[in-house]
Design a protein around this nucleic acid. Structure first.
Length: 286
DNA sequence: CCGCGGGCCTGCGCGC
DNA sequence: TGCGCGCAGGCCCGCG
């Protein structure tokens, strides 16, 4: 799924259709995704005004007028398909679909009072939807580390989190407790820019390397958000166009390609760490 | 406590 | 053409 930039892109795409509008109907088309859905979710959604859409890590949070918040995770293959309603005019976001009968893997369909329709489609069903009191918290959100663009994410924080860790830096940056929102693609891209081999042990990085990671993480994520989120085959914009940032990947999915570093004659390698592919240049990542 | 591997699902592209 | 295999952007959980 989607990593932080893609989730943020979806949030921005949903906001004009949902914020300030009432959920007229909620069609829950199966009892579970990765986890069971609240059995009374349809009733709890129906008639609620969406006060705002937030993002925390890779979760979208929809605050409802009745005091509950909807927690949404897109998993690996989740998509939000959008059909605009009356008065929505030109929709800013992507993923605009015409109204149509539910398709295979359309699991949740929200119809707004404007007639706009938001359909959650997730073939692999690793996605999650749940509800919790807005004033409270949710177990899935506890333990998530600082947002990468927030002040709490700093070289001091990261150094403290990585100190003494005998796990590869690749795994440490994928750990949402250390920094929220990075996934396999963007960790590969960050480590490439940092010149750090993905198998290096997190606790072995020196202070300068850790400090440089912080702005590089922000750069990579900001560039991807700017590009509208990358979209791979599970994450296609509705008109079939692919996102831009994927064309800016320097290592991810580029095994065998020449390294993009000026003057470097290396080629991109792929290794498997904890069952996940890591792409890197062995010549300039140490 | 920490690190690793399995499991959850479906779909797609590849090699035979 | 058909089939089996490996692979896919995430995350929780149990094991050692």
């Amino acid at each position: 799924m989607p990593e932080l930039p893609e989730v943020e892109t979806v949030r921005r795409g949903l906001a004009p259709l949902m914020e300030g509008h009432v959920i007229a109907t909620a069609d829950i088309r199966r009892p579970d995704l990765r986890w069971p859905l609240p059995p009374d979710m349809a009733q709890r959604l129906t008639g609620q005004r969406v006060l705002g859409l937030r993002r925390r890590s890779k979760y979208i949070l929809a605050d409802l007028s009745g005091g509950e918040t909807v927690l949404i995770h897109l998993g690996m293959s989740g998509r939000m398909l959008i059909a605009p309603g009356a008065g929505d005019g030109q929709i800013l976001g992507d993923y605009v679909h015409a109204h149509a009968a539910p398709q295979t893997h359309d699991h949740i369909v929200l119809t707004m009072d404007t007639g706009a329709r938001v359909t959650f489609n997730d073939p692999r069903r690793f996605g999650m939807w749940d509800m919790f009191p807005t004033a409270g918290t949710h177990p899935l959100l506890e333990g998530i580390g600082p947002e990468p663009f927030g002040n709490a994410f700093s070289d001091v924080w990261l150094a403290k989190r990585l100190a003494g860790r005998r796990t590869p830096i690749k795994a440490a940056l994928l750990d949402q407790a250390n920094v929220a929102g990075l996934g396999n693609i963007y960790v590969c891209e960050v480590l490439f820019r940092a010149g750090i081999h993905p198998a290096r042990l997190a606790g072995d990085l020196d202070g300068g390397q850790v400090a440089r990671l912080v702005p590089l993480i922000r750069d990579v994520l900001a560039e991807a958000i700017e590009a509208g989120g990358s979209s791979l085959r599970d994450y296609r914009q509705a008109d079939g166009e692919l996102g831009y940032f994927q064309h800016a990947f320097r290592v991810y999915g580029r095994e065998g390609a020449p390294c993009a570093t000026p003057g470097c004659t290396g080629t991109i390698s792929r290794i498997v760490q904890s069952g996940r592919s890591s792409f890197f240049c062995a010549a300039c990542q140490r």
